[in-house]
């Protein structure tokens, strides 16, 4: 678990969300943004390279399946391209990007109507080339991991859209409450309430699963 937390911290560092160690990354990112704003297509491509992983994974976690995440991530970059002219260079690009991701995912969730069944990472992996298995990994361990992931996705599915967005950004993307509040356009108090409720629901779901497992 600590390694995953470190991974999340590393990912947020590359987005310039942490102040201590991310200064060079933030600086390069800001110069890249400025070049892209000036209309440099190569800079925009670099911008996609830098952020596509993050955008895809966040969208996937928010929407719960590959197709929607893929469409949403594309829409995110289209909006970035469209509204980059309106971005103020002194602002935090990562926070701005997160706001777009949240809005696009919300729109997608609204469009698709009632939430459909989550496809597990494993099934996504089977039917697409989107995610690949690291070579040499133990098949059994992977199966256990995949099962656990599916359970976690089902647990996330019990949350409302807002709770899900808050918990994904706070607990899985590793943003601070303040950053989450900015990305969601809510107050910190509202975000805390959503996070608290989401954590309680996830715990309840996990408890139910554990009970069922013990009985079975």
């Amino acid at each position: 678990m600590p390694s995953e937390v470190a991974d999340i911290a590393l990912m947020t560092d590359t987005l310039g969300l942490r102040n201590s160690s991310s200064k060079p990354a933030a600086l390069s990112s800001s110069s890249l943004v400025e070049r892209a704003m000036a209309g440099d297509p190569a800079a925009f491509e670099e911008l996609i390279d830098c952020h596509q992983r993050k955008v895809l994974s966040t969208a996937w976690r928010m929407l719960g399946n590959r197709e929607d995440a893929h469409d949403a991530a594309q829409e995110v970059f289209l909006r970035v391209h469209k509204y980059l002219g309106g971005f103020r260079s002194h602002e935090d690009f990562a926070a701005w990007l997160y706001r777009i991701i949240v809005n696009v995912c919300r729109d997608h969730a609204r469009k698709r109507g009632p939430r459909h069944q989550f496809a597990s990472f494993e099934s996504e992996r089977e039917d697409g080339t989107f995610e690949t298995l690291a070579s040499g990994e133990d098949v059994e361990a992977n199966a256990i991991k995949a099962q656990q992931r599916a359970l976690i996705e089902q647990a996330l599915d019990t949350l409302t859209t807002k709770e899900r967005a808050a918990i994904v950004l706070r607990d899985l993307e590793g943003l601070s409450t303040e950053e989450v509040a900015r990305a969601l356009g809510s107050s910190q108090t509202t975000v805390r309430t959503q996070i608290s409720s989401a954590r309680a629901k996830i715990k309840q779901y996990r408890d139910r699963v554990l009970k069922r497992t013990r009985r079975g």
Binding site: M1, E4, V5, D7, I8, M11, Q52, R53, L56, S57, W60, R61, F121, E124, T129, F130, E131, T132, A134, Q148, R149, I152, E153, A155, I167, D171, L172, R199, I202, K203, R206
Partner: peptide, 18 residues
Amino acid sequence: SQSWLRSSAAPEFDAAAL
């Protein structure tokens, strides 16, 4: 419960897909 939630690592994407 929080550790369990975080055990779901971020999905990985290969270079071709990206």
